[in-house]
Nucleic acid binder design. Structure first.
Length: 924
RNA sequence: GGGCUCGUAGAUCAGGGGGAGAUCGUUACGUUCGCAACGUAAAGGCCGCGGGUUCAAAUCCCGCCGGGUCCA
């Protein structure tokens, strides 16, 4: 069945034959009738290294331009690249392919493509092969996927398989590729819920392009099975191609590794800094690298066993030992990886990823810390930002990088310091632990290493290093990271909140939303379309359903004299459902009834104020803190609202004041707030992805809201002009995650109330101290200092008092056996005083002291001198007995114990029983 | 989103229901022509904040605030 998919006219008309690979058994198309293998690794090794396959050498900029122009000349529209952080999607963090730019709405057919057909060179980031980067000679974390896409619909076909393969082949020809060297390998493709036939274009053992014909979508009852999943044909079918820009450049140069082809100058500079002689002119050296890349092309080197196997093969092919080879290769591979990782960071940071401990920010930090570790290993001591600067200069095609350089440097500076702090802390922790195990004569257990990494971020290698400094050995297993992963097993699936009546509601017509056209009207008439379980659906409504961080409107629905309270409003696929407060004997309204709706105006206006204020504060924050600020969430309430923004350090009080001032100035400018329904793609083109700060709304058209300088896709209700927001008062900031700051504020009357509340705190505090509010800071400062002094003085006095008591009480001691007992009640003394007195008295070795006081309950202290202890006295037991008498408990050490109870009347009795017990104790 | 950790003197940390400690740093004195080193002593603590349990909480429980970190 699938085989037919590949029987293209293009192949038959151009002398291609279909063959089966003698090694992997897969089918491929070639002009070379002699050919036996498919051309892909591992069936064919790289042959292009040292023998470029294009007639000319290209660098990145030249190759990208050549490709895009080639397709422009063949009726494709050139598109600007999208960011590497997928702002328009909520299912992935990073852009992983050019087609990701058009998912989900264009690929699903809901939204027309920005151009058709189109061509683009899309920077992508994939971190899945992190371990292979540098080692394999071909892996990169960041690459540009050059692509041409055609979005076809039934009856509206742009082009399909023949033309796609034809264009690809023509491109190769234009570059001077030997037609006999090109193979197209059949390799069905599936991913992200879609699938389809696909051919891989291979030259010289290198896969340079993948041509996917996406025409299937996953479906339970589909009749086509691929890799165990069922698929069915889609109405729209898409040409999804991917040409690796970096691989093209590599193929054009035939250099030993892709790294030497893509960013040779940075590789060379870092090699110098690491003290490595990276002389590709040296044939012996170049041969080692080439041989390594050739053989690495045949395997997955991210696994340690495979890497060792690779070393063995390369070593034997050039006649050396694995050890000698490793000594040469490891530093070189590390420098390659540093070069790659720093380019990845350049794209991430320039496109606005803020390093953090969650989400996309975590990925940035992962790469960043990996890079810092490798730099340390290589003895590269320049700041990370210097390397990133090299990349920015190396990529003049991206002028936006240059603009962001200041912020990038600042972020990197902060991150570098943070990591240094973490490592310092970790080193101390490990060494402490190591000393502990050294004393016990044991090795540091694996669980400790796992905890160090998992809870404190200390890489095991660093733990090992720090431990060996103390002289303790550590066993580091190969599967360390999978052991860590085990500890995290089975994260609980969170339940997705689904609207319970979605099915029933989906059969109803979409509700007409009156609140957009008439944001100030609060009363309306409508017809009931459906009623179920206290849920009412109308043909039109003024009630705003919960969404976009704005809570639902409340209010009433009335049919004649029946008035129903609306306590919640939800929307499901455009249908607004009003949820009614329980009424004892049923709702008494029917389908078809005409209702009078009335929205609670105060609630709505508070929400509107806070919603508009959110846009204003967001804009002010960006103006004060920088363009990297991005909304990460927001919620509005009646009395306040909050906004979460990405920012890489804490917001200072001055910055906060500045934000508040700018926000209020925007209010006073009193500009009109406008909303416009726009075509999604058109809006993206005009305003960029900043539109999606508040979330990505579905659908072909989106509501573009302009509040002063802030432009976002927003479905909320707003004030008609900024002036109506009223005052905006920032209440507090909070750091909810590393890299995400939460700003809480109130707007309108709520802001006035919040200010009044703050004022009342001030006034109450001032009243309590009998000063004017403006004197509070100095007065409180004085009070605090005095309080500390009094506390110290109090301490001293108690000690003095204890002295006085001591001399007096020592004289009053009674003899019990060889010991002396002091048993006394000291009125008004607190427990500390008793302890001091008892402590001092027992410097007399033969003394036993039992003291009690009756200030706020009974306090008891017992103590025994050294000789008394030897004689059998145990203050702990004495105090416990005495405390039981007064209805409490107590205990402590034989030398010193405390206790107490509630029954003040029995203090003397308690002392008596203490004395009796002591007599028993020393008799033994 | 899920998990793990930590907040004690200026710094680094120990203690982990019943007398708040160590090291470094600071200050003073001694030694020295002076410095370093050394010796002696002192100052320096809302034991993050708020509740709860208890006769008793730095210590146990709950909440909050502030850090750190791993994973998706």
């Amino acid at each position: 069945m699938l085989e037919d998919e590949y029987q293209l006219d293009f192949f038959s008309e151009n002398g291609f034959v279909r063959k089966q690979c003698s090694k992997c058994g897969k089918h491929f198309w070639t002009r070379d009738t002699e050919r036996a293998t498919c051309g892909d690794a591992p069936c064919d090794p790289y042959s292009f290294i040292g023998e470029p396959v294009f007639k000319k050498k290209f660098d990145l900029a030249e190759m990208r331009e050549y490709y895009l122009r080639f397709f422009e000349e063949r009726d494709h529209t050139r598109l600007e690249r999208y960011p590497v952080i997928a702002r328009w999607r909520d299912d992935i963090y990073l852009t992983i392919a050019s087609i990701a730019d058009f998912q989900p709405f264009v690929t699903s057919g809901q939204v027309p493509p920005p151009a058709n057909p189109l061509t683009i060179s899309q920077p992508c980031i994939r971190l899945s092969d992190l371990d292979a980067v540098g080692r394999s000679g071909r892996h990169l974390t960041t690459f540009e996927m050059m692509a041409h896409h055609a979005f076809n619909k039934k009856g509206e076909e742009i082009y399909w398989k023949d033309h796609t393969v034809g264009l690809c082949d023509e491109l190769f020809n234009s570059l001077g590729v030997d037609p006999m060297a090109v193979t197209y390998k059949e390799e069905p493709w599936a991913g992200g819920g879609n699938a389809g036939p696909c051919v891989e274009a291979l030259i010289g053992g290198l896969e340079v392009a993948t041509l996917v014909f996406m025409d299937l979508q996953q479906s339970k009852d589909g009749d086509i099975v691929i890799k165990g999943n069922n698929y069915r044909k889609m109405d729209n079918y898409i040409v999804d191609t991917g040409y690796g820009l970096e691989r093209f450049v590599w193929a054009s140069k035939g250099s030993p590794t892709i790294y030497d082809a893509v960013f040779p100058n940075i590789v060379n500079e870092l090699m110098d800094l690491a003290g490595i002689e990276h002389e590709l002119n040296n044939t012996e050296y170049a041969n080692i690298l080439s041989q390594n890349a050739r053989l690495a092309g045949l395997m997955d080197v991210s696994e340690k066993a495979n890497l060792f196997e690779l070393r063995k093969q390369v070593a034997s092919s050039i006649g050396t030992t694995v050890e000698k080879l490793s000594a040469i290769m490891e530093p070189v591979e590390t420098v390659y990886a540093i070069t790659d990782h720093t380019r990845c960071l350049t794209f991430m940071l320039a496109d606005g990823v803020i390093p953090s401990n969650v989400k996309a920010g975590y990925l940035a930090r992962l790469v960043l810390r990996r890079t810092l570790r490798m730099m340390k290993d290589m003895g590269i001591t320049i700041p990370l930002s210097d390397i990133v600067k090299m990349h920015v200069q190396n990529l003049p095609e991206y002028p936006e990088f240059q603009e962001k350089l200041d912020v990038i440097e600042d972020i990197l500076y902060h991150e570098e310091r943070k990591f240094a702090d973490t490592l310092d802390r970790g080193r101390r922790m490990i060494q402490k632990s190591a000393r502990h195990y050294k004393e016990a004569g044991e090795k540091i257990p694996l669980t400790t290493l796992v905890e160090m990494y998992d809870s404190h971020g200390i890489p095991p290698e660093i733990s090992k290093e720090a431990a060996s400094e103390v002289g303790v050995d550590v066993d580091l297993p190969d599967n360390f990271y999978s052991l860590v992963a085990e500890g995290h097993s089975k994260a609980e699936e969170k339940e997705v909140k689904v609207f319970p009546y979605a099915e029933r509601v989906s059969k109803l017509p979409r509700t007409k939303k009156l609140f957009y056209d008439e944001p100030t009207r609060m009363n309306f008439e409508a017809v009931i379309l459906d009623i179920f379980d206290n849920h009412i659906v109308l043909d039109s409504t003024l009630f705003y359903p919960e969404g976009g961080g704005q809570p639902a409107d409340h209010g009433t629905l009335a049919v004649e004299d029946i008035v129903l309270n609306v306590i919640d409003v939800q929307a499901s696929e455009g249908v607004v459902v009003h949820i009614i407060e329980d009424v004892e004997d049923g709702l008494h309204v029917r389908k078809g009834d005409m209702v009078q709706g009335s929205v609670n105006e105060q609630r709505r206006m508070s929400h509107a104020c806070h919603h508009t204020a959110t846009h204003i504060v967001n804009d002010a924050a960006r103006k004060v803190l920088g363009d990297h600020v991005w909304q990460a969430g927001a919620q509005k309430f009646v009395d306040k609202a909050r906004l979460d923004i990405s920012h890489y350090k804490r917001i200072t009080q001055e910055e906060l004041n500045q934000i508040e001032l700018i926000a209020n100035r925007t209010v006073m400018d009193n500009q009109r707030v406008t909303a416009e329904w726009m075509d999604r793609i058109e809006a993206e083109k005009k305003y960029g992805f900043g539109l999606y700060q508040g979330g990505v709304p579905p659908g072909k058209t989106i509501r573009v809201l302009k509040v002063a300088d802030d432009i976002e896709a927003c479905g909320g209700t707003h004030c008609v002009s900024t002036g109506l927001v009223g005052p905006i008062k920032i209440l507090k900031t909070e750091r909810i995650q590393d890299g995400v700051e939460r700003i809480e504020y109130a707007a309108g009357l709520a802001a006035v109330r919040a200010t009044q509340e703050m004022e009342s705190y001030l006034n109450q505090s001032a009243d309590a101290l009998r000063v004017r509010p403006e004197h509070l800071p100095s007065t409180i400062e004085r009070f605090f200092c005095e309080w500390k002094e009094f506390k110290k003085e109090n301490q001293r006095l108690k000690e003095d008092l204890a002295h006085v008591h001591v001399t007096q009480m020592a004289n009053e001691a009674i003899s019990i056996g060889d010991l002396r007992l002091v048993a006394a009640v000291i009125a008004h003394a607190d427990i500390d005083e008793l302890v001091k007195i008892a402590g001092e008295l027992t410097t007399n070795r033969d003394m036993v002291v039992l003291l009690a006081s009756d200030s706020s309950g009974v306090k008891i202290v017992g103590a025994a001198g050294e000789d008394a202890l030897k004689a059998g006295a145990d203050a702990g037991k004495l105090v416990r007995r005495m405390s039981e008498v007064v209805g409490g408990g107590g205990g402590g050490k034989p030398a010193m114990a405390r206790g107490g109870g509630v029954d003040c009347g029995k203090v003397t009795e308690a002392l008596e029983s203490g004395r009796n017990l002591l007599e028993e104790q020393i008799r033994k």
